[in-house]
Amino acid sequence: MSRTPEVHVPETRDMSPRAVLWSAAGLVAFVAVALGLVAGLVHLLGHGRGPTPVTAPPPMAGGAPLDEVPYLGGAQVRARAEAELTRYGWADRDAGRAIIPIDRAMDLLARKGWPDPDDRNGDDRNAGGPE
């Protein structure tokens, strides 16, 4: 009952040169069609028009903004901010809300604590100590 092993016989002929040439021609045709499709899509979507020209922004009446020319106008901005942070005034006179300098406000918060929004009658139960 022994089986004889199958013997593989090597091929005796090569591939046809005509089939190789047709395969290469088909590959070249496929690549050409794919490139044509991509070029058509690029043209259709408008990306083949070249770069968009960059134009300078129009001049501003008050001078250049700080982010374009950082060394121009910085002193004016700092002076205006300093004036806002150190002034007294009314935010809403009818509601009794005043504007006070930031240093004074921080000092009051440090001594008295944050105001209680439920305390509507203005009494100082949450005070952190004497004034």
Rank of each mutant, 00 (worst) to 15 (best):
M1S: 14
S2D: 13
S2W: 15
P5Y: 00
V7G: 05
V7N: 01
E11Q: 08
T12M: 09
T12L: 06
R13E: 15
S23H: 13
S23N: 11
A25M: 12
L27K: 15
A29C: 10
F30R: 09
V31T: 07
L35K: 07
A39G: 08
L44I: 04
L45P: 05
G46W: 00
G48W: 08
G50W: 02
V54Q: 04
A56K: 11
A56D: 02
P58G: 06
P58E: 05
M60S: 10
G62R: 05
P65D: 02
D67Y: 14
D67Q: 14
D67R: 02
D67P: 01
V69N: 06
Y71T: 03
L72P: 03
G73I: 09
G73N: 11
G74H: 08
V77Q: 08
V77M: 05
R80G: 06
A81N: 07
E82P: 06
E82D: 14
A83K: 03
A83H: 04
E84D: 13
L85I: 04
T86S: 14
R87Y: 03
R87F: 07
R87I: 10
W90T: 07
A91L: 14
A91E: 02
D92W: 07
R93I: 04
R93Y: 08
A95H: 11
D103V: 13
D103I: 07
R104Q: 15
M106H: 05
L109N: 01
K112N: 12
W114Q: 10
P117S: 02
P117D: 01
P117F: 01
D118T: 12
D118R: 10
D119K: 04
N121S: 12
N121E: 12
D123C: 11
D124E: 10
D124I: 15
N126T: 11
N126W: 05
G128V: 05
P130S: 04
